[in-house]
């Protein structure tokens, strides 16, 4: 039942694909959205019983493809143990994703997608073997975001994401991001490289 629930959560963006596909789309590879944002992650389930989420920051890059949008995300978020025995750690997330855009409404744009990557943990622990002070784990998630263009290439953007970290004890995170976006048109030679 739990697996079914997770599958449904991840499948939502794909089920909405036909509507998203009708969205106005910029030419493939023609631009990149650069978003710098503050990130607030809330542990869910068992993880939330031991740790509280911290406030971090994130950088997103998004580029239109012939079908959909490819995204790269880097985020840095500290987590704090509820007891001293639960050592604090800092998570660095490196994710790539794919999404589809909703039809634009004036200055408002939105998209949703799925993403996968690494959840890298650095533990504030000088006692254990150095080789064990860092871990990385598979991270899978779904995102939804909206952006409002404010002036020229500048927009404000907000994103909500739900992620599953494939630890021994399945761990889930609900993250909220808000920040500023700059849309950069790419010169031909960069388009040629990434095409």
């Amino acid at each position: 039942m739990t697996k079914l629930r997770y599958t449904l959560k991840l499948a939502v963006p794909l089920l909405l694909a036909p509507a998203f596909a009708r969205a106005q789309r910029p030419a493939p590879y023609s631009l990149v959205d650069i978003t710098a944002s503050a990130d607030r992650s809330a542990p869910r389930g068992a993880f939330g019983g031991y740790y509280t989420g911290g406030s971090g920051y994130a950088l997103d890059l998004a580029m239109p493809l012939p079908v959909g949008v490819v995204t790269l995300t880097a985020a840095h978020v500290p987590y704090h143990g509820m007891l001293e025995a639960y050592r604090d750690f800092t998570a660095t997330e490196a994710l790539f994703g794919w999404g589809l855009a909703l039809p634009k409404r004036g200055r408002l744009s939105a998209r949703a997608g799925v993403r996968a990557g690494e959840f890298m943990m650095a533990f504030d622990d000088t006692v254990i073997t150095p080789g064990l002070r860092n871990e990385k784990e598979l991270m899978l998630g779904a995102t939804a975001e909206a952006a409002l263009r404010i002036a020229g290439p500048w927009s404000i953007a907000a994103q909500a994401s739900w992620d599953h970290v494939h630890l021994h004890v399945p761990t889930h995170l609900l993250s909220l991001q808000g920040g500023l976006r700059y849309t950069l048109g790419l010169p031909d030679w960069i388009q040629e490289i990434v095409r």
Partner: peptide, 8 residues
């Protein structure tokens, strides 16, 4: 399947 923060 790493322990992650559950190691503690």
């Amino acid at each position: 399947g790493d322990p992650g923060p559950f190691r503690y």
